[in-house]
Design a protein around this nucleic acid. Structure first.
Lengths: 242, 242, 242, 242
DNA sequence: CATGAATGAGTGTTCATTCAT
DNA sequence: TATGAATGAACACTCATTCAT
């Protein structure tokens, strides 16, 4: 923080260049000498700091993901309600991805499908973060925020899949500037998904949702209805689709 | 269909081999000579049929996606309701991905992030298919199936992102055999997402959700209420989360 | 044999160039591209024929040593006496080394001390040939040609060490033309070494080595000796030095 | 000698490390940084003392061979007989090679075939030592110890080639511990070679090797011979083999 | 059509060596 | 004197691609 102005070290310059070039050309098509040139060092210097081209690749998310997830974790204890925490976590993803487009391109388009990356500390940090999301959803199920029949894994997949898909397409369209930032998409997405799994609170719902257009008429209807239908069970529940 | 038993042509053998090898090793790590060996032809023969290694790569989804989407399109006219058509389209994705794991690995893990692939006929077919999905969602909005304030793009992203995420993870875990096939995941996912955007049909809702425990009491309550509140609008609708 | 005039194949040209360059500059200092240039092919063509720089290195003695030792083996059955066979074997070494100076430089100065070369078929051929030498010496000991107390291993070391040393020095002096060819050195060397281990054949030796200083005295001594010792065998054999 | 306990200087530590590593891995495969690490100094420090990797290589035999040959030279004046001096010189080789296996591996397996090494002071010392050997053999010829027709160069080659060959093979078998030390091989080798070139001392030979088949006949022959040939020197000398 | 044979172009990686501190 | 940091210069090896047969 204090050294914002400090001249970047060689190592940082190399990682910055590598991130940009790996993200834009893909790992196999990027060459060490292009990276070293952009960083203003020699090829050999890259190998001073990173033993291997792949080591350099993995060093990037290693640094970023650790920084990010530690940061976001710090905020969580201050948020009480499950949905709020869920939103905070998703927001940290979205912010990270939006503020570091090269990073998100790298992770979403290349690293996620790299087998060796999945054995990396960086990927472990990502997994840890995904696990917290899962735990949070489970807590929501346990405390009645979400319906008891919710499949926590599936919800997580829908949540992360949605965000990832939005970013992947954003990247594939060349990251167009949009009036709404990517972050503005988060709440609608969350609302769609969460509204699908929120536990219904029945009594309240009657109270809340009842909209009496004409009380007199209703009163009459009820009176009329009473003698005839003892067990007026106007059906349904039709909750499952089809 | 009719030629199931016919001996595969050279071209088909090459494409089959290429699909498997590209999917398993990634495009840059696959070599023409490995493919030609598996196909039982010479390197040079591969170049007889496909001008370039990349041409061969793109020829694969070209063929598959055209076949598939034409097939699935044929069914749609027979399905009247929007949700049914939506489900049919999603199902055709899921079936394709699950039945052709090499193909889904190739498309989801490699091609999606390939810039040149986006200028391909194969990608055009994929876009067309994605566009039909969008149209269907819009139709649902127009005909009142979905809420008027639904963001069709967002819904499509959530739908496809969920499915893609599920398949990507399935691949990255080595495509484990699961008791429920991937297809069984579709309905829960759809239900979560669609239930979040279905238009509430107010009258029905009153009818549907009202559960009158004691009609007499209610009747009395209403009578009591009448004189005081002419326009008894017991608040509510509180639809926004939190 | 019949195709002496035939144009050399690429493979042969590569091996020829490699032999010369490896011998003159040493294996690590030789480069593939120098070899390929001299052979008139591309670098990649070298790798068509030889998987590795080291494979190319080992392919050279592989070919030569097999050819040579089979050839020399063919003559041996026609030579009865042990010394003659020994000489024939040594001669085949010397001829090979002298007629293929690059080959002898390579083998004597570089390959002999190369650990991986010792696991090679070429080295197996060399070992086989060295073993025949040993067998021959042993046979000489068994049949009385050589003294019974001869250390066959040691003799072989002395024989081969002598020849190798002579060639190493010949090479290190830049292979000077000499009035006597290297082959002319073989017999003197053999004579020195073999004369050191030949079993003495008593009768002949008497004739040959007798030097009578004083015939009268001897005559008298003999006369005196006659009655007593019919078979005067004045012992001796005293063969060990010192 | 006096400074056995003194802490080794940087320079010595570097040379010790270099000797071991050059010998074990070969010069081209050894790296400066491995050497400097083993010596406990930095790469740059190596270059303080030795201008070049090759300079470091040549500095090692330079030091050792000077030390050794000066030492051995000191003893020679005390040995009168030629064979004794020859033996002393050969022994100093064998001792040096056996007590400093790294050194002998380096010299015999790598330096001997290095052209630039032959322009080195170290090689000059080796040549000087080889020259003394030659002088000694010549002296033996001159003073009648060795036969007049001995080829001094050839004898030296046989002597040194034998020792070198034995050591090379010892190294190539991984320097096995042997019941007889390498030094114990020297005398048998010397005996084989020298016995092949020793001048015959006639009297002893008569006494030792005389085998009289028929004393009477011999006696008569001698009597007959006496008047005619005062100094009957019956032929002989037939020294060349076959 | 099919292919064996050939190669141009390229890249990751290594290390001896330098030099400012 | 000692060295940490930096690099220039190489080199083995790979592979998509071509083309004569």
């Amino acid at each position: 923080m204090a050294d914002h102005t400090r001249k970047k070290t060689r190592k940082e310059r190399i990682m910055d260049a590598a991130l940009r070039i790996f993200a834009e050309k893909s790992f196999p098509e990027a060459t060490i000498s292009e990276i070293s040139k952009e960083a203003g060092v020699s090829d050999a210097t890259v190998y001073e700091y990173f033993g291997t081209k792949e080591d350099l690749l993995f060093a990037i998310p290693e640094k970023i993901s650790n920084d990010t997830f530690e940061e976001s974790e710090a905020v969580l204890p201050f948020i009480q309600d499950v949905e709020g925490r869920l939103r905070a976590m998703m927001l940290s993803y979205v912010k990270l991805y939006e503020n570091n487009p090269h990073y998100s391109a790298l992770v979403l388009l290349q690293l996620m499908s790299n087998k060796r990356f999945r054995q990396t500390d960086a990927h472990a940090a990502i997994r840890r973060s995904a696990h917290r999301l899962l735990d949070c959803i489970r807590e929501g199920i346990a405390n009645g925020t979400f319906r008891a029949d919710t499949d926590a894994y599936l919800i997580r997949s829908v949540l992360m899949g949605s965000v990832e898909h939005l970013f992947i397409h954003w990247h594939m369209q060349g990251m167009p500037k949009r009036d709404k930032s990517m972050m503005a998409l988060l709440d609608p997405v969350l609302e769609i998904i969460l509204s699908g799994i929120r536990a219904k609170k029945p009594e309240q719902e009657v109270v809340l949702r009842l909209k009496v257009e004409n009380a007199k008429t209703l009163s009459r209807m009820l009176s009329d209805a009473l003698p005839e239908k003892k067990k007026g069970k106007p059906s349904l529940k039709k909750n499952t689709v089809k």
